[in-house]
Design a binder for these strands. Sequence first.
DNA 1: TTGAAAGCGGTACCAC
DNA 2: GTGGTACCGCTTTCAA
Lengths: 353, 353
Amino acid sequence: MSTIKDVARIAGVSIATVSRVVNNGPKVGKKTREKVTQVMIDLGYTPNANARALVTQKSTTIGVVIPDLTDPFFASLASGVDKIARDHNMQLLLSTAQQSAESERAAINLLIERRCQAIVLHSKKLSDAELISLCDKIPGLILIDRVIEDIKDKCVWLDNEEGGKIAARHLMSLGHKQVACISSKYQIEDPTLRLSGFSQEYNKAGIVINDAHIEYAEPNQQGGEIATQRLLASKEAFSAIFVYNDAMAIGAISTLEDNGYKVPQAISVIGFDDVLISRYSRPKLTTLHYPINEMAQQAALLSLDFSCKKSQLKGNGYKYIPRMVKRESTTKRDNQVIPFQTDLYRINQATYD
Amino acid sequence: MSTIKDVARIAGVSIATVSRVVNNGPKVGKKTREKVTQVMIDLGYTPNANARALVTQKSTTIGVVIPDLTDPFFASLASGVDKIARDHNMQLLLSTAQQSAESERAAINLLIERRCQAIVLHSKKLSDAELISLCDKIPGLILIDRVIEDIKDKCVWLDNEEGGKIAARHLMSLGHKQVACISSKYQIEDPTLRLSGFSQEYNKAGIVINDAHIEYAEPNQQGGEIATQRLLASKEAFSAIFVYNDAMAIGAISTLEDNGYKVPQAISVIGFDDVLISRYSRPKLTTLHYPINEMAQQAALLSLDFSCKKSQLKGNGYKYIPRMVKRESTTKRDNQVIPFQTDLYRINQATYD
DNA sequence: TTGAAAGCGGTACCAC
DNA sequence: GTGGTACCGCTTTCAA
C-alpha cells in the first residue's frame, strides 16, 4: 500500500504539498494539484487514518458498547449511533460486552485504546461509582438506558415507571379492573420499575394488584407462555395482562389462544418495547414504544458535543417517555365474556423448539 | 490522556522498557516491571491503538460493509463477524452503505483508510469487475452473499436455487400439486434464483407453474399481503404458496386467514430466510434457514486467513445450502378442502400502518 | 536487563 | 505556492 511519500516522490513534489492536495488545503497551484491527483489515482493511494488520528489527536470513530447485535433492540441502538456517525463523516466501532462487569470493562477499554472521541455505553453491570469515574476520565462518554443522578447530564434513558403508568391508564380506560401482570426477575431495574408504575396507577384508582396476579419468568417468548400457563392455572380472574416485554407478550397471546381465550375479545394483552416482532404478530401487539433509535442518536450527538468540550454546561440529561402504540391486542372489556372459565381451561402441552 | 513517555519519565525508565512491560515482553526485571505497572495504574495509562497500528502496520479491526443494521438479517451477519473478531481479540468496524454503488464504494474506502486487515463485504451494487480489482488490491477482502466466478475463492454465498428446489420437494412430498408463488422484483438475483429452482423442480415432476400463479411485490409484509390478495382475486386454484421471504410469507398468511383460509389446513405457506419473526408468527413459519451468522463467521475467518497471506491456495469458496425448517405453516394437502372457493372470497380492506 | 534512536504515515508550522 | 521538518505515540533493532 503506497504512502504519501511515494506519491510525493513520483509526482516530484514534497509530502507537504501532497498533504495539502489530499485535504483540499488552500494555496495549491492548479497544475500541481492535477498532477498529484493523477499520481494518487495511478498508485491507488489511500491515506492512512491511523497515522492521521495519531498526529491530529482525534479519531473519527464513535464507539458503542452493547451486549449483543443479534437482539433487534440493541441493533437499533447501534444503528442510531451509526446514523449520527455517518452524518458527521465518522464510523462506528463496535464493542460487544457479555453481561458481566469484567466484559463491559474490557469492551470500554478497547474503545479507549482506539481513542474514540465519543462513546455510547449501554452498561448494566458496572457500578455507579465505576461509571462515574469513567465519565470523568472520558469526556465523551455517554450512558444510555441508565440514569445515575451524579452524572445525569451524561445520561439518556427511558422512564420505565411512567411507561407502566401509561399502560395502566390505557387498560383502565378500556374498563379493565381485574388485571394480571407478567414480569421478569432475570434483569434488574427495568421490570421492577415498569411493574411498580403500573401498580401505582391502579392503586391510585383504588385497585390493588395482589401477588397472585403477578407471574415472573424469563424475558422471552417461552417465558411468556410459561407465565401465562401459571396464571391460568391459578384460576384467578382477569381480563387483561400487562407484560414486561413484547416477546413475552407474544408468548402470552399464544398460550391464551391455545386455551380458547381470544385476544383481545376475551383477554387484552399489552406489551412493552415495540420491537419489530410486535408488528408481525397476530393480533398485532398493543405496546409501549421504546424510542431506542432516537435515544441512541441523541446520545451520540451528546457524546460528540461533550468530546468537543462544547457542552461544559451541566444539563439534566435526556429522559424519554414511552409512547402508547394501540394496535390490536387490547380492547374494551366485554362484560358478556366471563374473564375466566375454569371448566374451559386445559393445560396446553406445547412443545418448544 | 497520558502517554508512554509520561509513564517512562515518572517510573524513571526508558520508553522501551515501558513498551516491554505493556507487551509482556521478555527480559524485564521483576522490580522494574512492578514499578512500571504501578505507574501505569496511577496514571490510568491506556496504550494508543492508532500509534500501535501505525508502527506495526496492522490494525486489529475487522471491517464489515452492510446496508442496514436495523435489518435483523444484516445484524446477524455483523454479529457473526463480531464473534470471530472477539475470538481474535479484534474489533468490529462497521460501515453502512446505502443501496448505491457510490455509497458502497465510500463505505469500503473508509475501511481501507483505517487499514483493516480483514473486510467482509456485502455488496449488491458494485460491478463484478470493480469487485475483482478491489479483491486484488485488498488481500483480506471477502464477499458475502454473492459469488463471482473469477474470485470464487473469496466468496461465501447461499445456493438460492437449491433452496427453491428444496422448498418444491417439501411441498410435493406433502401432496401439493397446485402451487402459487410470491416473488419480488425489487432486488436482483435472489428472488429469480429461488423461483427458478422451485419451478425447475416442479417441472421435473411434470408440473408447470404458469405465470398466473406467480405474483410479484415488494419484499416486506405488506407486499406479501398485496400479492396474496391478487392471487386470491385471480381465482386460480392452489393449495400452497412458496413465498420469497419470511416477511412476505407472514403477510400472506395474514391475508389468507382474513379471507377464511386456515393456514396450513386450507393452504400451506412456506417462507425463506428463517429470520427471527418466523418463530414468532402464528402459525410458526415453515421456512428455509439461511445460515447467515455461520456464513459471516466463515467469511471473517477466511478474510483473516487471506490477510495473513496464509491462504494463497485458491479454494472454491464456500457455498451454503439452505436447510428446511418445518414448523407449522405447511401440512399435507387435504383433499377434503377445496383449495379455492370463489364464493367465499372477499376483498379484505386491510389498513396498513 | 536496559536505553538510544530510527522510523511508521501523516499534519502543520515556518521559511523561502 | 511550495518545501523542510518537528512531532504524534509506539515498536523494535542494536548497543551497552
